[in-house]
C-alpha cells in the first residue's frame, strides 16, 4: 500500500517536472519569443534591454534560467509578474484558487447528483416518453453555450426580476469568501453553479443511461432478476455500481480541468476572480511568470484528480484491486 502510494507520488513529481520543462521551453526558448523585449516594452533602448536581460537572468544559460524560475516559484515563492511590476505571482494564485475551487466543487455536486438521477430514471423507463423527454432535456443542456445561459441568468436575477421577491436574495456579481459569510458564499455561487452544471448534467446523464442499458443486458443482471429482487434493487445495486466506471473516469478529467481554470467563461460572466480568469489575463499580457505559475497549479490538480479516480476505481471494482 505504502509502496503503491510512493510510486504514485514519484509518478506525479515526474509528470509535473515534464510539464514545467515543456511550458518553460515553449515560452522562453522558442525562437522569436524573446521575454526581454516583452518586459522592456516596445522601442526600448539597447541599454534598457541589457539591464532587463541581466535583471531577469535572461543572459544566463537555459537550464540556469529554468532552475531560477522553479526556485522562485516553489521555494522562495517570490516570483514577480513581469507586467504588473512587483506583484508576486504565488499569492495571486492563492487568492484565486478558493474562488475556482468553490465554483467547480459546487457545480460538481449538482451535476453528479442530477445526472445520476437523470440517467437512472431514463434507463429505468427506457423507450418511454419519460426517457425520451429526459434525453431531450440533456441534449438541450449540452447545446446551450454556458456564457449565453450565464448572461440570461444574470439578466433575470440581476436586472429584470431582481427587485421581485423571487430574486431579491441574489447578491451582486462577485465572490464572497466562505469564511466571511457562509450564507453569502452560497447565495453568490448558487446561480453560477447551476449554470456551469447544466452542460455536464446533459453529458453525464446520457453517458450513464447508455452504460446502464448496456449493463442491463449482462448475465448478472438476469441472475439478479432470477433471484427475485425488485427491479429498483436490480437497477440500483447491481446495475448502477457496475456502470459507474466510465462516469468516474469522465468526472476525474472534467473536474480537474475545471479546477485548473477551465471554467473561464463562467468566471467571466459572473465576475468571479478565479484561476481561469487569471490565466486568461496572464496569456493576453504574455505575463510569463504568471503563465508558468498557473499552468503548474492546474497540472497539480489534473494529476491529483487522476490519482483520486484511480482510488475510486479500486473501491468500485475489486477486479482492479487484484490486477495491480
Amino acid at each position: 500500500m505504502i509502496s503503491a502510494l510512493l510510486k504514485r507520488l514519484g509518478q506525479t513529481l515526474f509528470v509535473l517536472f515534464g510539464i514545467s520543462v515543456l511550458v518553460f521551453l515553449v515560452f522562453f526558448a522558442t525562437p522569436g519569443a524573446d521575454p526581454t523585449s516583452r518586459i522592456a516594452g516596445k522601442n526600448a533602448s539597447p541599454e534598457t534591454m541589457t539591464r532587463v536581460r541581466h535583471e531577469y537572468g535572461f543572459d544566463r544559460p537555459l537550464p540556469v534560467q529554468y532552475a531560477t524560475m522553479m526556485k522562485k516559484l516553489f521555494i522562495t515563492r517570490d516570483l514577480a509578474s513581469y507586467v504588473d511590476r512587483g506583484e508576486l505571482v504565488v499569492p495571486e494564485i492563492v487568492r484565486a484558487a478558493p474562488v475556482t475551487l468553490s465554483l467547480a466543487t459546487g457545480a460538481a455536486v449538482i451535476w453528479v447528483v442530477a445526472s445520476v438521477a437523470m440517467g437512472t430514471v431514463a434507463a429505468a423507463f427506457r423507450h418511454t416518453w419519460i426517457d425520451r423527454s429526459l434525453m431531450m432535456l440533456g441534449l438541450i443542456g449540452i447545446s446551450i453555450p454556458v456564457f449565453w445561459l450565464g448572461q440570461v441568468a444574470n439578466l433575470i436575477t440581476q436586472a429584470r426580476y431582481h427587485d421581485t421577491w423571487l430574486f431579491s436574495w441574489v447578491p451582486g456579481l462577485g465572490y464572497i469568501p466562505f469564511l466571511e459569510s457562509p450564507v453569502g458564499w452560497f447565495r453568490a455561487l448558487i446561480i453560477p453553479w447551476v449554470v456551469l452544471a447544466v452542460l455536464f448534467i446533459g453529458i453525464y446523464g446520457r453517458v450513464l443511461r447508455a452504460d446502464l442499458i448496456t449493463v442491463s443486458g449482462e448475465d448478472f443482471m438476469r441472475t439478479a432478476r432470477a433471484k427475485g429482487l425488485s427491479p429498483t434493487r436490480v437497477l440500483l445495486v447491481h446495475g448502477l455500481r457496475t456502470s459507474m466506471i466510465t462516469f468516474v473516469s469522465l468526472f476525474g478529467l472534467d473536474f480537474a480541468q475545471l479546477i485548473g481554470g477551465g471554467a473561464l467563461l463562467t468566471e467571466v460572466v459572473f465576475g468571479l476572480q478565479g484561476v481561469g480568469r487569471l490565466t486568461y489575463q496572464a496569456l493576453s499580457n504574455l505575463d510569463l511568470p504568471l503563465i508558468m505559475a498557473s499552468v503548474m497549479y492546474s497540472a497539480v490538480f489534473v494529476v491529483m484528480a487522476n490519482a483520486v479516480v484511480d482510488v475510486v476505481y479500486v473501491l468500485l471494482d475489486p477486479r482492479v484491486r487484484d490486477a495491480r
Binding site: 449482462e218 448475465d219 448478472f220 438476469r222 441472475t223 439478479a224 432478476r225 432470477a226 433471484k227 427475485g228 429482487l229 425488485s230 447491481h238 455500481r241 457496475t242 468500485l316 471494482d317 475489486p318 477486479r319
Partner: peptide, 23 residues
C-alpha cells in the same frame, strides 16, 4: 413473479463468470 423467482423456482446459468455481479 418476484415471490416465486429465487424462492420456489431458481435458475442456474451457463457461464458462472458473467452470472455473478463482479463487484
Amino acid at each position: 413473479f418476484r415471490q416465486l423467482r429465487g424462492r420456489h423456482i431458481a435458475m442456474v446459468f451457463q457461464d458462472p463468470m458473467t452470472a455473478f455481479t463482479p463487484v
